[in-house]
Amino acid sequence: MGFFLQNIVNALQWGSFYALIALGYSMVYSVLMLFNFAHGDIFMAGAYIGFFVASALLGLNALGIVVMPGWLLFVLTVILAMMLTSLLGMLVERIAYRPLRGAPRASAALTGMMVGIILQTGNLALLGAKRRTFPALIPTVTFQIGEASVTNTRIMIVAISVVLMLALHFFVRKTKWGMAMRAMAYDFVVVPLMGVPINSIARLAFGLGSALAAVAGILFGIAYPVLEPYMGLLVGWKAFVAAILGGRGSVLGAAVAGFLLGFIEIFVAAVFPSTLRDLIAYSIILLILTFRPHGFFGEPYSARLRL
């Protein structure tokens, strides 16, 4: 029982990252109908930006210029990194996606990959292959719930993720901007004719997705404090799987699928030999997609006017 509970705690944390990153893929997809393959690397960039912001703030703290408690440092780091990373996301949209809006979709997908490679190798050239340790902004406290070990950071990670997902869901469903995004998802030929600015909406989608990736990056840095330029590669691809599994363009679907992916990976490793983890986990995903090819919350293409 304790073992089971412990794995649930582990899976919740691991799933949070997939879910947060998958949301970024979904946001962009719902507006532009294409996947931003640089998203995993924007997550990496977010982690590094968070690292530099946190180091700068810690430096100020150490010098006694601005003295802040750990939680305030953390909140400031998150907010600043979200802002900076969303700027990066918007820049990527402006440079790599907007000029190709009329181009074949394969070209736009390729652009994303190129941007991803540029971000990875640019980081490598700029900062070198040296690993960075994400500073522990909040001291970790471990406590027991029943037979499972839980830390304050784990609870924080899961809580922040869930709150952000709900906020995003609310934003897309209840606000004018969200409505514009959904309308754009419905038809991006007619909707702009009705006065909805497509460029602003695309920028918004990239900005929001990147801000979420920054939060994911910082939380990832706190949970797994070894940063390296290729850290976004594998996580990015797996989160992409979650985005597809959730249903292309569905915020709720991406979040649910992200957690599901975390649970499948952790429990497969917990029950079967861990060598077979990805083999079994992704066979399960393949099976799910065979029976639900549009994911959990996705609509068949034919239901859309655009395709």
């Binding site: 073992f3 412990q6 794995n7 582990n10 594998l234 952790i266 490793a269 861990s274």
Partner: peptide, 13 residues
């Protein structure tokens, strides 16, 4: 496998 970052399931085992 190489590049894995989360070992919680293995460690729990």
């Amino acid at each position: 496998t190489t590049k894995d970052r989360d070992f919680s399931a293995q460690l729990a085992k």
